[in-house]
Write a protein that binds this DNA or RNA. Structure first.
Lengths: 128, 128, 128, 128
DNA sequence: GTGGTCTAGACCACG
DNA sequence: GTGGTCTAGACCACA
């Protein structure tokens, strides 16, 4: 599977999907600090998205300290990632997030067991 | 936890969150066929959302055959739910869905193991 | 005559009139697959209707597979129109529809012969 | 077919459908001056509509001079029907009315020829 | 009191 | 500039 993807039919805005995809890939180790990202145009073509949309996400993530742009060279994952806040006290956040996922799955005919299996499979193949 | 919730800060549109929440609650059996939903205005107050936003979701789900409205009476879960397509051939759909969830989790500092545990916990408490 | 019209005095809701007008124009070939529709705002001005009302119809018809929207570009007639169900077994539907029309005509002083003539005239001028 | 009908799924409000049905039946001669209409409750049951809705239509039509109510006896078609305005100069009205009908028909997969045939058939069987 | 329709207008996402 | 989302609030149809 491609490292970064967006779903044009999903109601979540493309820019948000892309931003989350990049943040997630870094947090999960699929994109290491210092790694180079695709150019704006490459990624725009690959994701079938307007280049402005990709560029805006890169700029935003640079402002957040997640990415670094070296002019004329490219865009890279920052060496030091901004802290994210510990898990402590954020159980409600996790629960809401997972509940949304289960809702979406159930709404499309997938059971919690289906989701469970897929989570296992993806986490094994990616960093587990 | 409340049966239906929305997160005003999440980039997914409120109406899409609510629609998925209702569909999920029905699919998971937390809302049974024939059950009455909260009135448009009640739910709007409860979710801190405009009544039009709730009404839009109810109308949409009625068109889809998921809900039934009786004018002047209220809104109910339809007795016969529309088919949803078998899981067969939709593995890619499930994978994308779960990947989005894991991305979002990772981006906020939760590991795949955290998600795994939360899925187990929610599915135990809701559907056995 | 304008391609799309609504009657603000008719008891049928504006959005329903517009939806039927668009569906009818496509089915009758006055709007070909791939053709671009007026922009939401243009049509709103032309029909003296709120932009939200037009947008609502466009969104609904997109969900139904009748239209396609390209974000930031415009709204177009879908290349492949959804099936509509054969006429077989729907004679009652046609009869009810025409009866409603004749009722409305009679109530305003038009005879069935008047309607007959007008149907001939319109079908000659529009679809041969 | 029943003399008066309403379609609960049609977007036109029930009261408007009923009013038009009664006016049309009178204008077409299916309800003669002096004829008695069903009681409010009978018609409400028959049409599966709330009695208030039927009552409101009767009241409205009485105000318009189309019906007459004799207390304790029933509701009747008035002996002298209010004038409706000649057809002259109202061609645009007829055209719009028929165009709406053809749109609705085309949107449901019926051709202008289908409508033509049905108009002939109904007008023959009812008073043509 | 229930849902449905419409308006006006703000702000966002995308190209 | 295109469509999409949301709000606030008026008024209508129906039970």
């Amino acid at each position: 599977m491609a490292l970064l993807t967006v779903d044009h039919r999903h109601p979540t805005p493309l820019y948000a999907q892309l931003e989350q995809g990049i943040r997630g890939a870094i947090a999960a180790g699929r994109l290491a600090p210092g790694a180079q990202l695709p150019t704006v145009r490459q990624l725009a073509v690959e994701l079938k998205v307007n280049a402005n949309t990709v560029a805006r996400v890169y700029v935003e993530l640079e402002r957040a300290g997640v990415l670094e742009t070296r002019r004329g060279v490219g865009t890279f994952v920052a060496q030091t990632q901004p802290a994210v806040g510990s898990r402590r006290g954020r159980d409600a956040e996790l629960r809401a997030l997972v509940q949304r996922c289960l809702n979406e799955a159930a709404a499309r005919g997938f059971s919690a067991a289906d989701v469970l299996g897929q989570v296992r499979q993806l986490s094994d193949s990616q960093g587990g």
